[in-house]
Amino acid sequence: MKRAQGDGRLGVFQVTRIPLLKNLLAVFRYRVLVQSLVVRELKARYRGSVLGFLWSFINPLLQLVIYWFVFSYIMPTRGLLGTSPYALFLFTGILPWTWFSASVMESSAVLITGGNLIKKILFPAEVLPIVVVLSNLVHFFLGLPILFAFLIYYGKVHWTLVFFPAVVLLQLVFTLGVCLFISALAVHFRDVQNIIANVMMLWFFGSPVIYSYLTISPSIQRYLNYNPMTHIIVGYHQSLFTGTMGHWPWLLVMIPATLITFLVGYYFFDKLRETFAEEV
């Protein structure tokens, strides 16, 4: 049984570049591997700790308690427009932000730490950053019950909840694109690993996580609009917290924007794919 040419795995492979889409399909064929690697990540993360998986619930809860304490007693906020209760507002944005920033930071090292796999086992390298994004997505999901419990407690259940999955999807596509780009770049420029934490810090303040998009002066808003995470975070705030989807035109713009980010990131990754085995 001769395998088809350019199968991407075994069989005849030519010098000619395998098209981008074929590689994407190959990733789909490796979904079982992606799935088991995500499960492995999650298992390995809590292996050996007494509370195990409970940490995925406890951590966001503790985070929420800290915000509540800080913003109720240490520096009470002045009840800015549409951000009350502030701790909950903050939590709504910080959960998805954590998913994004943890994914980007982990992906800057993933090809290097997983170098052994790339060099010794035949499998598509993009599996590694994808696993990073998905396992952080699972963490995000595990934090959601806490978020929803408090949203319900404060009576913040809105019809706009139906937009929530769409925003998650936008963020997923965007995060994948950024992570593929960063992971490939970090193979050639190890500097990326050092700078990334600061870049993410800047990005954090450049996204309306700790402040409300609506309270910013338009002159600054103009710049923040270039940041896709701005609109994604606002999407979470509006669909879960305020219950008004006034930001929907921007979210429509994000559909092509996140797709383009993904394609650019994947194209870059694909271009450098063959250098990984030699460089990591």
Binding site: M1, R9, L10, G11, V12, N116, L117, K120, I121, L122
Partner: peptide, 26 residues
């Protein structure tokens, strides 16, 4: 085994390969 790609020339393998290049790599 397909882990590296040749710069020129072709390799064809008939059937499923298992490569014991480094044990327990994953």
């Amino acid at each position: 085994s397909g882990i590296a790609k040749p710069d020129s020339g072709t390799v064809s393998v008939d059937g499923r390969i298992s490569a014991l290049i480094e044990l327990g790599a994953g």
